[in-house]
Design a protein around this nucleic acid. Structure first.
Length: 264
DNA sequence: CGTGGTCCCTGGGCGC
DNA sequence: TGCGCCCAGGGACCAC
């Protein structure tokens, strides 16, 4: 998409999770896409107008890029026109469709020169694959924190971009109980946890992500990291390391899966 | 302030 | 077959 011009944007309803920007189609049409980026789970599109289009997929959002023939997308199997909320046509004739059944995703426009004060990203923690993230950072970030480590890792101001699946998987790899208080992690446990987070994220990206029911890449490919889950969504099944039955519990409203024997 | 609960929304799966 | 309930990748918001 970089370097292409947006020919048109069609918005099929007034809102997703939040209302679409005022005069959305007008502000985006005719603009060149200068750069695509990502911070945490937010996607950014720098436009030649000086505005940044910030987008989030929520839980069920999906972008599909379909090739030149308009008809192709319409006739593809498994499509869901009822939830195609935004359709963008590029000057390459590619069609970028945003589909989102639950509408927890959103799109916003923000001035590029004030992007450092974009509220939703102001308090973001470091990217797990960047140099700003390390065992030393985790040591500092978790010191004195009373929340369970599961909750702390889901907190985007501690570390950006980890969701429920990868937090469960990283804690299993680091052999840390999800119930353990964050303040007891610094030291040896942080030394195991930081690389476990790195590895699980790097491997999941390499595997094309995790497709449970909704996720697919822009070309429609499914990920296959779900076949490598050690604990996530595996309640009642054996731990791949020790054979103990995987347990499920609810922490701050979300399911946690863990091995009660390996994870301490 | 940090933390936990609730809610936004649709659809799939299950028990009855 | 159909109904009601529970559950789901996220995160904003509110009460304590």
């Amino acid at each position: 998409m970089e370097g292409r011009k947006i020919v048109s944007l069609t918005q099929n309803r007034a809102d997703l999770r939040f209302p679409f920007p005022e005069r959305f189609a007008e502000r985006v049409s005719g603009q060149k896409i200068v750069r695509l980026g990502r911070r945490a789970k937010f996607l950014t599109v720098e436009l030649s107008s000086g505005e940044v289009l910030v987008m989030h997929l929520g839980m069920t959002g999906r972008f599909t890029v379909s090739g030149h023939a308009t008809a192709r997308y319409k006739h593809e199997t498994g499509t869901d026109p009822a939830h195609d909320h935004v359709v963008i046509v590029l000057d390459s004739h590619d069609i970028v469709t945003y589909n989102d059944p639950r509408r927890f995703g959103f799109m916003e426009l923000w001035p590029a020169e004030q992007f450092q004060s974009y509220p939703r990203l102001m308090a973001m923690g470091p990217e797990p694959l960047s140099n700003h993230f390390s065992a030393a950072y985790l040591d500092t970030a978790l010191k004195g924190k009373k929340a369970p480590i599961k909750a702390a890792l889901l907190d985007q101001s501690v570390i950006a971009g980890l969701g429920n699946i990868y937090v469960c998987e990283a804690l299993w790899r680091a052999k840390i109980s999800p119930k353990r208080l964050s303040q007891s992690i610094p030291g040896q446990r942080a030394a195991r946890l930081a690389p476990a987070i790195n590895d699980v994220i790097a491997e999941a990206i390499e595997a094309g992500g995790s497709s449970i029911s909704d996720f697919a890449s822009a070309s429609g490919e499914l990920g296959y990291f779900q076949h490598r889950f050690a604990v996530y969504d595996r309640e009642g099944q054996p731990c791949p390391a020790c054979g103990t039955t995987i347990k499920r519990l609810v922490q701050s409203g979300r399911s946690t899966f863990y091995c009660p024997s390996c994870q301490r």
